[in-house]
Amino acid sequence: MTTDDLDGLLADAARTRPDPSPAFMDRVLADALALQPQPVALQPASPRRAGAPRPGLLSRLAGLFGGGPVLAGVCSAALVGGALGYLSPGTYDYVTGGLADTTGDPVDLFPTSDFLSSEG
């Protein structure tokens, strides 16, 4: 037998693949479906409603301080404190009308209390 003869015979064999019977194919498919993993049901990413807007940075910051009005008060106090620290003491006269002593001399708040420290 020549090489060509053998190659021809093998090629014929490749073309004449035996067909599986329908019953056998049904058995294999039944196995496949029996062993197939169940599809995974999709879950929502979070329980939050889809239409609800995400809170902004300022809202979350205000939440940390107890709400918007509280945050406004804290900011106002910070601004006033900063201004008082920045201005020189003499400038306060414009605000206090000279009521405050800004000369640097000590103020005797309780002039009649010396008797408490006297001996005898």
């Binding site: 693949r17 067909d19 599986p20 056998f24 194919m25 496949a32 197939q36 993993p37 599809p39």
Partner: peptide, 23 residues
């Protein structure tokens, strides 16, 4: 797809691979 539960993929793989293995 079969591993994700696709039944059509089960059928396609059966029809495609089984005859070759059987032969």
């Amino acid at each position: 797809l079969y591993a994700n539960g696709d039944r059509h993929a089960a059928l396609a793989l059966t029809q495609r691979v089984t005859p070759r293995v059987l032969a």
